[in-house]
């Protein structure tokens, strides 16, 4: 774990040494504020002291920015040929994966924390209920982590960043829409509850209401764990090859 943390720190510094972190933060913050205030049913039009609009668009914002972050994580290493060097280090594949994951997660978490000024603004205008804000941030962090885990796994399969981006986007689109009403309406009756349980957004919505349900947390943890494991397995497999 200590080695993962060292790796994570190095990766995180690399984010801030290059324009990646700034572009990520600026795009995310600007888009979230834009949708919060300027969409048709924006904050002032609804006229309620709530952050729900923000948390409604959060899954979709993350859906576009997280693949942009994860696409290069392995593809870049493979293209530059540094992956082989990394794999010769005396660290287990899972530690490398965890290190990269933690660094990317720290960036996503920072982005979410930067939404707090928005929450304070809302609280200054009306009686904001902080429960759903805490729930939404926690849910956002778990959702972001799930996107990251999946995106990193996809990135480990290819050396082309564009391919990694598109595959991640398509895969995540599947995971956020598989439990939506139009899909469920057409799915065989027996399969519907399973599909609904697989939907990342359904679990996020449940938490973002301000309700922490162990089942939702458990789902996210297994989802993240599974894809991180696959990622490590893919690395180990390449080491063998």
């Amino acid at each position: 774990m200590a080695r993962s943390l060292v790796l994570a720190r190095r990766e995180l510094r690399a984010y801030f040494d290059s324009p990646i972190a700034y572009i990520f933060l600026v795009v995310f913050l600007a888009l979230s504020s834009y949708f919060f205030f300027f969409q048709i049913q924006g904050f002032f039009l609804v006229g309620q002291a709530t952050m729900r609009i923000y948390f409604e668009i959060l899954p979709y914002l993350l859906l576009f920015v997280v693949p942009a972050l994860t696409m290069r994580l392995w593809a870049e290493e493979r293209r530059a040929g540094t992956e082989e060097l990394l794999l010769t280090f005396p660290v287990r594949p899972f530690e490398i994966v965890a290190g990269k994951f933690l660094a990317a997660f720290a960036l996503v978490a920072l982005t979410l924390l930067l939404s707090l000024p928005l929450a304070f603004q809302v609280a200054a205008l009306g009686p904001l209920d902080w429960g759903p804000v805490v729930g939404g941030l926690l849910g956002g962090a778990l959702l972001g982590a799930s996107y990251l885990a999946f995106g990193m796994f996809v990135s480990s399969l290819t050396r082309n960043q564009i391919v990694a981006f598109i595959l991640t986007l398509v895969g995540l689109l599947f995971f956020v829409s598989v439990g939506s009403t139009p899909v469920l309406a057409r799915a065989p009756a027996g399969l519907a509850p399973f599909l609904e349980a697989l939907d990342l957004e359904t679990h996020f919505k449940a938490i973002a209401r301000g309700v922490l349900d162990l089942r939702d947390l458990f789902f996210y943890l297994t989802f993240i764990g599974f894809f991180l494991y696959l990622n490590a397995a893919a690395l180990a497999w390449r080491r063998w090859r």
Partner: peptide
Amino acid sequence: ILVEANLLARRLLVRRADLTQDKEY
């Protein structure tokens, strides 16, 4: 195993904390 664990969890892990001010949910 993970799918089965989640199915089990849906039945067994029914503990939740309602963070909302009025316990709305």
